[in-house]
Design a protein around this nucleic acid. Structure first.
Lengths: 218, 218, 218, 218
DNA sequence: TATGAATGAGGGTTCATTCAT
DNA sequence: CATGAATGAACCCTCATTCAT
């Protein structure tokens, strides 16, 4: 299940028709439910198909196999992430733009959106992401970050005091992700508390305000 | 494998004799190699036993099953973490004590030790830790952190400007872990670069220097 | 195998279609053959499936596991018992009805039918029945007896001089079964001899003719 | 476990010394307990040895293997049977001899003794006996019967109105055994009730009083 | 296109037995 | 004599995948 051999990523068929698209979505949703409820061990093609209300072979008509479903699942989740954060951020930025004054803490809004995203389907997300990594597609995990980065980059007036270097962006994002994942894992009940949000905001601001390391030659 | 029911953790047989202890170590080492090389799918009891040069049933004489081996593996790794960091920190602190002047950046030394630890056996560690979490033993992941915290608490002269609240310690640790894991995952080749170390040090210092959120009522 | 915990009895899949029913029968027949030829040790799911000419997993599609096959086997055998005896008895009774005179010893005919049943597949039957008992389903063993009793109860003219009390019916049946099983076991070659039949008839008649114990207060 | 291939019956060593004999007994008793408590599945050499408080290999020093232990167990039980019945019968017969009048129902006393024997260790006995049969040693099951028969044959004055033919003795014994075993199996709670004893006595007397079949030519 | 019965390789685990101590 | 660690064959069962309908 978890071998590292590259997996053929594109779905078997690009479904053009509405019905096919719907079926893909049904299968993915079923997969998410199964994963969330029963963990990776419960995630079998037969079970997912059954939950989706289709035959096993239908699943194989739309996906290259079990791995492919998992990968698609992870990507779907990733898209949700990106969308949620982007939207929150856009709203904040646009808000500012429209009324001509500083947005009320756009970074906080983005963090709040992230927390909400992490609060849902914690099992499912972790497993799906692990699979993505195992499939050698770990780099895709950066997608939501990039979306945010792109959004921020588009706003020339400094949201953060200093432009963030790619490395710093990487560290910041993965650090945030680590804190959020740990909280989501249930190691603590922090996730939903204002104090936790406060800490994250604090972390982001403190780090982003740092003068920045001298340019590395790496 | 991913169900959350508590797993009986203690090994089947308390090895009192040297030979038995050695065999446990041999099996764990074999498990680590298999996991590192082939991922979770390759981690079968038969394969691990074979690599260890023992019969399958010997494995079962020392461990309660596949899960138990994985859990023991994770704990072993955790102990390595704690030991490495603790040792680095101790050396730094003692160094200072002995020559009467400020240690050369003990926090940096600890981070450097962590980076080294994360650089080895990246697959194995991630999978083993996931197993720990899946076994409902996720709280054990805090062990190395606690060791460090205990060590720091023993030094009254402030290593960090302000004492860290538990929540802040949690965030800091999981954030660090997130950054290290992401770097180790190969998303980037940052892990071994001085710049990456620099960023982590920067992150820790900036965050630790924060005045701290007002006490929350949560 | 010998623990007493109730076993989930119904087959995994209710076979509605003809082909499925046939497959169940094929598997059961294969099981009977394997059991008869090799004893309980030879009764492995793989072996049974192979003999049936299907894959192992097909067996598992129709049965909940090894135990379930054994139980189904026992029930099938039980049904054969009941059917054989019932049929013999019916024939005798109807014969009488049709020609208006006493049937030629219906009890003897029933016994003869029983002997024939016991003569076939002796190993298989014993083991399968033991399994039924071990599965906590021992009460099912009474099924053929009840069928006979029901049949007799339907004939108001006394086949036996006195109605048999439940206890007496129990003793009579289990005694008969004991004698038949012992003979079938090969302790002696009595099973097929007229003398043995004679003795059984004698036993039944003598015991059934007894006035009956005074009602006990237990 | 239940294969029918003949098993080498004699124990590996005829233990002459007291200690050895004691150890054999300890092992057998442990086996009986394990069998009674856990059924045939729990009867493993390791488990029996552990319960006996000896090493596995010690078990193998006194028995040829698992089967041999089971066979010895069955024989031990059989001896208990024979002893119990013989003793009860002897007491009754001697009682009569001593006071010169008819013993108070010696057949009833024998039956009562049998019932007591069957009431104890029901699981263990059934399994052990099955094993004896599976080992091709089923004929040994006749041993207690023969002991009784021998005892009765020694008393020329008719205990039963008519001498019993071997076939009739066989039927009677196996019938009794069947009734007792069925009752012991728990199909009913009859075993300990006076009414059940009454029925058995009734069965024996009625059948034994039969004039007897004409001499068969088998 | 959709189905689901069928497959068989392979996984985890047990246990009768041996052999070096 | 006694031990018990070690063995490996074999068991039961699952599941990703296919193919005839």
């Amino acid at each position: 299940m978890g071998t590292t051999r590259q997996v053929s990523v594109p779905e078997r068929r690009i479904p053009r028709q509405q019905r096919a698209l719907a079926k893909v979505e049904v299968i993915l949703e079923a997969g998410a439910q199964v994963l969330e409820a029963g963990g990776p061990a419960a995630f079998t093609t037969n079970r997912v198909a059954e939950r989706a209300g289709v035959g096993v072979s239908t699943l194989y008509q739309y996906f290259d196999g079990k791995q492919a479903v998992l990968v698609a699942l992870a990507r779907r989740e990733l898209d949700h992430h990106a969308a949620a954060v982007t939207q929150a951020l856009s709203a904040a930025l646009e808000g500012r733009a429209s009324n001509g004054q500083r947005a009320t803490e756009p970074d906080r809004l983005a963090i709040r959106a992230l927390i909400e995203v992490y609060a849902a389907r914690r099992n499912m997300r972790r497993i799906a992401f692990d699979t993505l990594v195992a499939a050698g597609l770990g780099q895709e995990l950066a997608r939501p970050v990039e979306a945010v980065a792109a959004l921020l980059a588009g706003n020339d007036d400094a949201l953060f005091p200093a432009r963030l270097s790619p490395l710093r962006l990487f560290v910041l994002t993965s650090a945030m992700n680590g804190a959020l994942a740990a909280a989501a894992r249930g190691d603590a009940k922090h996730l939903a508390t204002p104090a936790f949000e406060e800490e994250l905001v604090s972390l982001v601001r403190a780090y982003a305000a740092e003068p920045g390391a001298p340019p590395s030659d790496i």
